[in-house]
Nucleic acid binder design. Structure first.
Lengths: 130, 130
DNA sequence: TCGATACTGATACCACGTTCTCGATAGCCT
DNA sequence: AGGCTATCGAGAACGTGGTATCAGTATCGA
């Protein structure tokens, strides 16, 4: 049988991992994904999380986010333009729909430097920790 | 002799490395620092670059910048609030004095989420690559 | 100038995040 | 239901960025 692109099996592990990411309030670390998924799949291993993340990335359902702290996190793809809020108190990371970046019409942030996209991370205190 | 805070020796290696960082147009990678410093100090090794970076960081003269690509770079401390522009063509990273982030008076980017600081990276084409 | 010793370069080593290996298990097609 | 085989979990192995080691060298106070 040839290596099929979409013919992966549907397993409980994959379903749960995908669901964890889909319902998260922000990008998650591998450890967070593992912990949350383990609540549903007892005995789940890290290797499976990494394997599933790779599959989901190849299927354009998940993308990688690297925060300015160097932490690698994963979030659902196709959320549209958004940014992240990193709470200094609880260290949780949240999605933010608001984009407070105001560029000039020309998209030139400085003479000759034309902006195509940007990545923005906020630091502060989240609603729960206020 | 006790461990002195400022009593390090002044060496050609350290002077050159500090100068390279001080005169850069943006944050540099270790390899970039090494390459540029080697132009002045033949035979300079990476270990010395790492050691000097550590010293400069402890002396608050240099700070670490981790870009959304995951790349670790080093820049002069005390440049004031600024952001970075990563050219997609030449991969060079430049400092930007402009800050196009417009927050509400309350500093609340969303209900309950109060912003204290932010990190912003732009992607696009730089002046030279335009 | 001289000596004590901080510093250097090369390289071995380490930590940590991720991937691979392999025997056991479970999905799914017939 | 039965069998093929993709997937699983555990742990070994890997890659990479950064640090420690060590013998030789350079700095700097006396």
């Amino acid at each position: 049988m040839e290596r099929n692109t979409l013919g992966q099996r549907s397993t409980r592990q994959r379903d749960v991992i995908a669901e964890v990411i889909r319902t998260a309030a922000g990008p998650l670390t591998v450890q967070e994904i593992l912990a949350r998924a383990q609540a549903d799949v007892h005995g789940l291993g890290v290797a499976t999380v990494y394997r599933t993340l790779k599959l989901l990335q190849e299927g354009e359902q998940v993308r990688t986010v690297i925060l300015p702290t160097g932490e690698t996190r994963y979030e659902a793809a196709g959320l549209g333009h958004h940014h992240h809020f990193h709470c200094r108190v609880c260290d949780e990371v949240y999605d933010l729909d608001a984009c407070p970046v105001r560029l000039p019409e020309s998209r030139a942030i400085a003479p000759g430097f034309v902006v195509e996209s940007h990545e923005l991370t906020f630091y502060g205190t989240c609603r729960r920790c206020a």
